Amino acid sequence: MESANQTDIVEFLLLGLSDDPEVQSILYGVFLSIYFVTVLGNLLIILAINSDTHLHNPMYSFLSKLSLADICISSSTIPKMVVNIQTQNNSISYTGCLTQAFFVLLFAGLENCLLSAMAYDRYVAICHPLSYTVIMNTSLCGLIILLSLFISIVNALLLSLMVLPLSFCKDIEIPHFFCELAQIIKLSCSNTFINNILIYVAAFLFGGIPLSGIIFSYTQIVSSILRIPSVKGRYKVFSTCGSHLSVVSLFYGTGLGVYISSAVTDSPKKTAEASLMYSVVTQMLNPFIYSLRNKDMKEALRKLISKIAPHI
């Protein structure tokens, strides 16, 4: 197969989810609606947390950063897909493709770290309540957020820059709706052994380690809750973890689903469809999970909307 150096590659073609014009018109409306709901929902969460002093604590500080990451990861993928459908042009520049892959990796990694940090926050609050304010102080929370961002940037940069030396075959069609790094590497005619190893290492670091931290935290939480004599008391304490557990289950469950689907099927289209869950749907549902299952968030959102409504 004829190959070309990466400097000769002007653009890639994102094949999307369907090439049927009727299906594409439906997808256009669906994804535009999803993007609007995602941005609006997560923006309301951020504004509600910042405007209500009762929510100025580590748990909601992490949540506001998670909502911001949700907005950013959706903004990295959906707008380009919508524009491509509208213009009937599936092309994306070489630089634009690598930039998109970088931002998806960055914000997905950040979301992983923040979910783990939120689990640790719940662990300290339930298992060490008397020391909570001392352990989860402002400095530690700020350090966790900055460290999560730094690690995510380094990981995204390393994986993205490792694509630059690769040569690509003339077949530059990406069977996906965004530039997923693994799909880009599959198009290369170069030896991609190191790239694949790095992807597996990164998947372990940003999947396995945070998930292990979450499992450990909840193991300790469950152990602590079981020592509470009152059933009502157990429920009340565990209910503070309900929203976070739902988000964790959704994020890691869909991510695992994508991994399994890519391992057992040779259909890139099915893998792309599975990727919708962790890169699009999860970000839309997170605000609903936290607003519907959390009494404090409901009250904060009610106050925010009552302030905004008279000015509309």
Rank of each mutant, 00 (worst) to 15 (best):
I185Q: 01
S230A: 09
V39H: 07
M1H: 11
E11N: 12
L32N: 15
I312S: 14
I185W: 02
S74Y: 01
S116N: 12
V222I: 14
S75F: 03
S306E: 10
G253F: 01
H56C: 05
F204A: 12
K170W: 04
L205R: 01
N286H: 06
I305V: 13
H244I: 05
Y278F: 09
S239R: 10
S217E: 06
E299N: 15
Q183W: 03
L157T: 08
T53M: 10
A182C: 10
I225M: 05
G257W: 00
L250K: 04
A108T: 07
L147Y: 09
L13V: 11
F12E: 02
V248S: 13
S212K: 07
S217R: 05
L47C: 11
T254H: 07
S152I: 01
D19L: 08
T53F: 09
F238G: 03
E273C: 12
L115F: 02
A117S: 14
I199H: 09
L245S: 00
P268R: 02
M297I: 02
R227N: 14
F193R: 13
Y259Q: 15
L198D: 10
I209E: 11
I289M: 02
H128P: 03
K307T: 11
V83P: 09
S93A: 07
T77P: 05
S224M: 08
F206Y: 04
I46E: 08
F204L: 12
V248I: 15
L68N: 06
P229Y: 03
A263G: 07
F36E: 08
F168W: 02
F31R: 03
G233C: 06
F177Q: 07
L164P: 06
S18I: 00
Y252C: 05
Y60I: 00
L40G: 13
N137Q: 03
I194R: 13
L276Y: 02
S74A: 15
M81Q: 10
M81E: 10
F150D: 06
H54N: 15
N89K: 10
A108G: 14
Q220G: 13
F62D: 00
I260E: 12
H128T: 03
T138E: 14
N286A: 13
K270R: 10
L27D: 12
L68E: 01
I145F: 05
G208I: 01
G109K: 00
L27Y: 11
F103W: 09
R122Y: 04
L250E: 03
L256W: 05
I305N: 11
A182P: 04
S243V: 00
D70T: 02
I144F: 12
L147I: 06
T133G: 13
L301Q: 09
T77Y: 04
L32V: 07
D171K: 10
S33N: 05
P58H: 00
Y123S: 11
P210L: 04
Q6P: 14
I225A: 15
L164S: 13
S188Y: 00
D52I: 00
Q6D: 12
F103G: 03
I197P: 11
Q220F: 04
V280A: 11
